[in-house]
Design a binder for these strands. Structure first.
Lengths: 128, 128
DNA sequence: GTGGTTGCAAAGGCTTTGCAGGCAC
DNA sequence: GTGCCTGCAAAGCCTTTGCAACCAC
């Protein structure tokens, strides 16, 4: 088992993801972390994000159509993805136990993802 | 409204995706279609897949960790994604109406995706 | 005939990797 | 001191795009 070191870079990446409400991608985390650690590299941000996902400290959101997004919230909640502006919105609803509905034997399920897509309220405005 | 032309290439791409049980990515569709149309290009495969998704003839599966996969089944069904071998497996279960549970106003929802990930039966074998 | 479509090649965006120096433990 | 971690640069992978020729309608 590899020991994970708590470097300043990794702490800053974790803090940035937790602080953000926008489900940032690597580039956004990079910009944010750079304010405190101007010399951090994008590669380190990618490596830190990967490590944090592996440790279960943050969650990965794929399927938003662009770069991978990250989520500091660890509870199981669905997302809405706006196909127009790319926004990822947390949906605070209580989901039924979908995992329990699976009858196919042999699968070891470690995570469940529920995603809705469409157009968000802002993008539905006629002036957009 | 743009008229969509039924070229041999596009028909072959659609047929390949429908025929496959493995939720192929663009490269696999390319290999498959090439048997009948040896001169088809990968770019055409990408453009055809995009057009077919836009028309609603096939579905896109993101979040498998690698390249985008495609699904010839149009009914709403969840997928299981094996993190070890990358297999995408159809789950034939009846999902509750998740869309109806969303209380946040203003969202125009056009699609719902439910994905489970973990390790499939084959990859759970001790000799793997 | 017209305009969407194709094949080719090149470019593009996002992410990963090799390496030498640095730092947490 | 040891071995993971970092920054830099380069490479990698997947996907998109410009262009001239082509073909479905």
């Amino acid at each position: 088992m590899t020991i994970v070191r708590l470097t300043r870079q990794r702490q800053a990446v974790l803090a940035a993801v937790r602080r953000s409400q926008e489900h940032p991608d690597a580039a956004h985390v990079f910009e944010e972390v750079r304010r405190d650690l101007p010399s951090i590299s994008l590669a380190t941000v990618y490596r830190s994000l990967e490590a944090l996902v592996r440790e279960g400290q943050i969650a990965k959101i794929e399927g938003a159509g662009g770069p991978t997004r990250f989520d500091g919230r660890l509870d199981d909640h669905p997302h809405f993805i706006c196909q127009h502006c790319g926004a990822v919105i947390d949906l605070d609803i209580e989901l039924p136990d979908l995992k329990a509905m699976i009858t196919l034997p042999g699968l070891r399920i470690t995570s469940t993802q529920v995603q809705f897509s469409g157009v968000c309220g802002d993008c539905s405005q006629p002036n957009n």
